[in-house]
Design a protein around this nucleic acid. Structure first.
Lengths: 203, 203
DNA sequence: CGTAAACTTGCCCTCCTGGCAAGAAGGGAA
DNA sequence: TTCCCTTCTTGCCAGGAGGGCAAGTTTACG
């Protein structure tokens, strides 16, 4: 069903990509908030309404490429090797993504990507929305695994913590600190240890 | 410095409260998105511009009352009794808030508050922003406690997990499930146990 | 009392987003 | 091929969030 793609579907996919590509180029040049949807439409050679046809919200364009990490993360946890903890699965996944990100030509350096987000409240909001979706989906998965009713606190908190590892890997590396692999494992250790490092008040 | 309050400061505080109060009443009646800033201005007897003077973003009005929980949470962790873990401090804090919320007359039932949030994407976004601020502030506090450089992954992940307990207490009780105290302790156990419940793949 | 600082307000502007309807293009049936 | 149906595109319009600026008003203070 992949081989068979109607003209219409192909064009639609191409249009989507064209819009996203043109938009990302403008974003990288000027910053997210300094690019209007009208600008994007002109750059992509379509009407403003068409842009909204593909992306109901402007900020979605920005995360269009990076958007399917959710499915990968869920799969990494769901189909983790027997005997592996969910925590390990996430850590392994993060490490894998990191290598992947490092191994491609920096047409758009990751640092620039992060900077654009840091400079725009709208993008930060959208990013939080995405992480929230990760949490919800992961919580549901964990609830199924453990047979706990969906919506319970346990899987929710666990999911939040797991996605926290992902967020830590992304956000803390912004400061240009350690390679990042250390960060992920450190975060993992904190969680696996039951937050033992914060067990006692300092005074 | 508290006793001495200039006329200007008093008026400003009253104006702020008047705007917030009028706005909350309208929100409760019609829903957040169905109330424009112009409506709020009229209801509060001020100009639309003045509303923006006090609240640069409309959604901030909604969380104005509940907004200072951050300071309390930080204090609860920072000044926790000697020998108490950060995790316990958060759990205690959540339990305390819950009693507090239950013990006051429901002029605006908590359920309505949650429902309003659930019905508005803008409010959800603002709520996530607030929780994000909690995470950042808490991460900084934990970094100081443990002497780790600010911006490290460990305190960040720990903070995310701790705020996760808070979020779980708020969000999961929405379904009208257990009293809530159970939820908080359950979440706490999951974290304290190092996510042991999710240690092994089910297959 | 008079001046400086803070606050309010009106006016205008841009941008995001949704609704509606007309036109253009692809896809399938006769 | 031709006709018709569906999908996309586009234009036009409208409403609401916010920002900038300047005039007018109120408070603070010497």
């Amino acid at each position: 069903m992949d081989a068979e793609e109607s003209l219409r579907e192909r064009k639609r996919r191409e249009s989507r990509k064209a819009i996203a590509h043109a938009a990302m180029r403008l974003f990288a040049e000027r910053g997210f908030d300094q690019v209007s949807v009208a600008d994007i439409a002109i750059a992509a050679g379509v009407a403003e309404k068409t842009v909204y046809n593909y992306f109901p919200v402007k900020a979605e364009i920005f995360f269009d490429e990076a958007g399917d990490i959710l499915a990968e993360l869920l799969a990494a946890v769901r189909y983790r090797s027997a005997g592996q903890s969910a925590l390990d699965a996430v850590a392994t996944f993060v490490a894998g993504r990191r290598e992947w990100a490092a191994g491609r030509r920096p047409e758009q350096p990751t640092s620039r990507f992060r900077q654009l987000i840091a400079d725009s409240a709208a993008l930060q909001s959208q990013q939080r929305l995405m992480f929230g979706r990760y949490e919800t989906a992961l919580a549901q998965l964990l609830a199924e695994e453990t047979g706990v009713p969906a919506g319970s606190a346990e899987p929710f908190v666990a999911a939040v913590a797991l996605v926290g590892v992902l967020r830590a890997a992304f956000e803390t590396s912004a400061g240009g600190q350690k390679p990042g692999r250390d960060q992920a494992t450190a975060a993992l250790d904190v969680l696996a240890g039951g937050l033992a490092s914060y067990a006692v008040a300092p005074q």
